[in-house]
Design a protein around this nucleic acid. Structure first.
Length: 877
RNA sequence: GCGGGUGUGGCGGAAUGGUAGACGCGACAGACUCAAACUCUGUUUCCGCAAGGAGUGUCGGUUCGAGUCCGACCACCCGCACCA
């Protein structure tokens, strides 16, 4: 067997798999199916280590499940619509379509050498007219079902570029290109009625047993069901038609602590009052800045006293002022609240700023009324003593207080208990070109008219330019002009396109029949759905996954998915990022300059790590008399590099490692092995050059071992056959459990251990060959190419990729005796070896007879002995 | 600001409430070599010559026993609805 040369074996095996059609997904009713899916990539043009990690994980699962006898579906596609393509067109000219398809070709060419077990015959891009045409068909079905509607909503408006900005294009409240102060502006837009499913999406989370607890919790908090009370304040001095002000509160028990009422700047009453220039000026102030919750909630709280009063529902003589406040959101509740500064921090800050009264309603159990220097906000499950209560007993929990207050309001008739959700409807309109066109037409006579299905797809026009900001569809000379599908009169196409989250909300279903003439094919979704294992980043914990869950329900409602697929992902795994150190210097004007890992050299000097620019040989420490002076010299020359601790690989920080370079240097198996070893898959993994080399060295060692075993004389005998068989069984057991439990790093640790055992084993030639074949199969999900070479060299039948997973003989997994540590007062002081099933009293006797124990006890009386069978003995003195 | 998560040797990490540091990297020592690299063997949590002691972000609690459970705090990461 020759030297380990991945550049030779990897293409050879990839060809062999292709020719055998090893990864073609087959609809085979005689086998259990398994659908493994990694979140599909945005075609940026370059794959990065995060992709390698994500797809290797999926590949390990896919290859493992195939070996376990499943018919596996492991597809790949492209999340191809979105802003970067338009930005590229603006910056470099060209067309988003050309840019995107070129990127897809480039990225696919980079993914192929990884040797992933993907069924490429099912590939599609969301920007393929065939895909988005089916999406448009579903949009029309959903429109018909009442799951889509139009309403006004706020967007980020750049007043200089006259265009809508995405949140990420708003930097410090300013437009990223124009630098102009961004405003919030209302626009009529399309919405999916996800709120129809709030309750359902929340309660169904309980059934997602194989989803991470944290994701379910995040979704539950996002949906945000709350039980509260809604009531109408009677107003005094309000404009006509506003004699009631509806407010919603989750703390009606604090009603006697009310200090003011506040409405959102977007509230109808605020809009009515905007006729007053002073109010208009204040509301304009509130509209400054972007639409993101982060920006709104971290903005300074400001308010405007309208002069209007409301009457307290429990005491009509008690009047509260009505303020307009920038931190009240129109989207939540009724867009109006009553403020109770004593028990809400935001209200407290507001009241302090504007000199409004702060009246405590309850105090901690056993405490006296005291002046507050911050809002007192205990958990609702905690008991408190009400000093200004009006319902329920004096001392009760917050929850009981709320329930009593609602009951009181309902009995007296001034309010009612209601359940509200934080979840808002999903705004899908985007004022951009590179997205799925919304297939409707606006007719002066008929209003909004759906496009006819036979006219789908509504294709994006190719003749567009990006020399001006804004949506080219909006200024296209002809594309917009169409006859009304209903009356035939001249009408206008909708120029908004869909949010790219729509594209990614159903691609998993399309993979089951990617060329079907309808969005899905009944028999195929029936066989392949659901996705058995979904793998992707935690950054998608809420939006993408929640939208997909909604979309699957909407697809069921419109006949595109069976009932069983309304939760499309049976199991979810969220993997961590690939990180790398950042290398930084500063230019003469003090601005940071970042450097690629390959452009710096790192060495150690004493206990110090020094990184310098360029590919230079490490200095001889003996030649440096004064290290500090020498470093200062380097720093003055500008070649001393500052090392910033690991962060997510990003182009702007240049802390990126190109997988193509790693594959060229070490091969795909090394890259795959590295990203699966060491770090647990859910955690971030730091890419290090030494780690990659170590992975390569190990694979070379395994290759050498295989070679050595291959050269053993056929009649060689040894004394270690039994021991090797036990080690093999243990390895099978551990690695199987590791892969099943997504503990790939532990599976790899077991592979290292088994390799070491095999290298040291003194067993017969047939036993060694057998163990080597098993090792190859056990390694094959992670490093399929080298495994295939070893498999064929050791006489394995057929392709390793199509061989069944080995089974561990249970009889070989049990040990007869066990080593028990002995603790004295919880500290380990000795150990004894006893038969596995020895009775506790006998274990006690042996433990106390142990030399170390006798020495440590030094005659002290023993108070108690705890024997945990098979685990530990603890002697308490 | 709000919601969620993470924190263990020089480094990545392992550990059903039961021997903290498996496995790997790095470092050190030895073998091989004219020499270096490669490879192989061994050592490697810290303090201490040793006996022994300390130790899982910090402080406190529950337990015979806590990295693991509970409470408070600190640091970092992810998300916040138009980035994908």
């Amino acid at each position: 067997m020759s030297r380990y040369d991945p550049s030779v074996i990897e293409p050879r095996w990839q060809k062999a798999w292709d020719e055998a059609g090893a990864f073609t997904a087959r609809h085979d009713p005689s086998k259990p199916k398994y659908y493994v899916l990694e979140m599909f990539p945005y075609p940026s043009g370059r794959i990065h280590m995060g992709h390698v990690r994500n797809y290797t994980m999926g590949d390990v699962v896919a290859r493992f499940m195939a070996a376990k006898g499943h018919s596996v579906l492991h597809p790949m596609g492209w999340d191809a619509f979105g802003m970067p393509a338009e930005n590229a067109a603006m910056e470099r000219g060209g067309h988003p379509k050309d840019w995107t398809y070129a990127n897809i070709a480039d990225m696919k060419a980079q993914m192929k050498p990884l040797g992933l077990s993907i069924d490429w015959s099912r590939e599609f891009a969301t920007c393929d007219p065939d895909y988005y045409g089916q999406q448009q068909a579903m949009f029309l079905d959903m429109l018909e079902k009442g799951l889509v509607y139009r309403k006004a909503a706020v967007v980020n408006w750049d007043p200089v570029d006259m265009t809508v900005l995405a949140n990420e294009q708003v930097i410090d409240g300013k437009g990223w290109r124009s630098g102009a102060a961004v405003e919030r502006r209302e626009l009529v837009q399309w919405f999916f009625k996800i709120s129809d499913y709030s309750e359902e999406l929340l309660t169904a989370l309980d059934g997602l047993k194989d989803w991470p607890e944290k994701v379910r919790l995040m979704q539950a908090n996002w949906i945000g069901r709350s039980r509260g009370m809604q009531f109408g304040f009677e107003t005094a001095g309000a404009p006509q038609g506003f004699d009631k002000l509806e407010v919603y509160t989750t703390r009606p028990d604090t009603l006697m602590g009310a200090s003011f009422a506040a409405i959102s700047p977007d509230h109808p009453l605020a809009k009515e009052l905007e006729k007053d220039p002073a109010v208009a000026a204040f509301i304009a102030e509130c509209r400054k800045g972007g639409t993101s919750a982060e920006e709104i909630e971290t903005a300074e709280k400001i308010g405007y006293d309208t002069g209007i009063k409301v009457k307290h529902p429990l005491d009509p003589a008690w009047e509260l002022p009505v303020w307009i406040a920038n931190f009240i959101l129109m989207d939540y509740g009724t867009g109006a609240i009553f403020g109770c500064p004593a028990h809400d921090q935001r209200d407290f800050d507001f009241a302090t700023k504007y000199g409004l009264p702060i009246r405590p309603v309850f105090v901690a159990e056993g405490a006296e009324d005291a002046v507050l220097d911050a809002a007192f906000v205990p958990m609702k499950s905690e008991k408190v003593r009400y000093i200004r209560g009006f319902a329920g007993v004096e001392t009760q929990t917050g929850d009981e207080g709320v329930a009593a207050a609602i009951a009181h309001a309902e009995a007296q008739g001034y309010g009612r208990g209601v359940t509200k959700f934080r979840l808002r409807d999903w705004g899908l309109s985007r004022q951009r070109y590179w997205g799925c066109p919304i297939p409707v037409v606006h007719c002066a006579k008929c209003g909004v008219v759906p496009e006819k299905k036979e006219n789908l797809p509504v294709r994006l026009p190719d003749d567009v330019s990006f020399d001006k900001p804004g949506n080219p569809l909006d200024r296209h000379p002809t594309w917009r002009d169409v006859p009304c599908p209903a009356c035939g009169a001249p009408a206008r196409r909708e120029t908004d396109t869909m949010d790219t989250f729509v594209d990614s909300s159903w691609y998993y279903a399309r993979f089951t029949s990617p060329r079907a003439a309808t969005p899905t094919d009944k028999a195929e979704v029936e066989y392949w759905m659901n996705v058995d294992q979904y793998i992707g980043g935690i950054e998608h914990a809420i939006l993408h996954l929640l939208y997909s869950r909604f979309f699957a329900r909407a697809m069921h409602a419109t006949g595109h998915l069976p009932q069983k697929a309304i939760e499309p992902f049976n199991a979810l795994f969220t993997q961590g990022m690939v990180t790398h150190e950042i290398y930084k210097t500063t230019d003469e004007r003090g601005r940071p300059v970042y450097h690629l890992p390959e452009d710096v050299t790192s060495f150690t000097l004493g206990d110090r790590r020094v990184v310098v620019l360029g590919d230079v040989p490490p200095p001889d420490p003996e030649l440096i008399a004064d290290v500090d002076a020498w470093l200062q010299e380097l720093a003055d020359a500008g070649s001393l590099v500052e090392v910033i601790p690991s962060a997510k690989m990003s182009k702007s920080k240049k802390n990126v490692v190109d997988p193509m370079n790693i594959i060229a240097q070490f091969g795909a198996d090394t890259a795959r092995w590295f990203v699966m070893s060491d770090s647990p898959p859910e955690r971030d993994v730091e890419w290090t050059a030494s780690g990659a080399e170590a992975a390569y060295k190990h694979l070379s060692r395994v290759w050498g071992l295989c070679s050595r075993i291959g050269e053993m004389p056929a009649d060689h005998t040894g004394t270690g056959d039994d021991e090797l068989a036990r080690a093999t069984a243990r390895a099978i057991d551990e690695i199987t459990k590791g892969i099943e439990g997504f503990a790939f790093n532990k599976a790899i640790a077991s592979l290292y251990a088994f390799t070491n055992t095999l290298a040291r084993a003194n067993a017969s030639t047939p036993a060694m060959k057998e163990a080597m074949r098993t090792l190859a199969k056990l390694m094959s999900p992670m490093v399929p190419h080298i495994a295939e070479s070893i498999w064929s060299y050791q006489g394995g039948a057929g392709l390793c990729a199509q061989a069944p997973w080995p089974k561990a003989d249970p009889a070989l997994l049990v040990d007869d005796s066990v080593t028990l540590p002995i603790q004295i007062n919880g500290k380990r002081r000795g150990e004894i070896v006893v038969p596995k099933d020895m009775a506790a009293p006998e274990v006690e006797k042996r433990a106390l007879a142990n030399e170390d124990v006798i020495k440590f006890l030094a005659g002290q009386p023993v108070k108690k002995i705890i024997v945990v069978p098979g685990r530990i003995v603890n002697v308490v003195v």
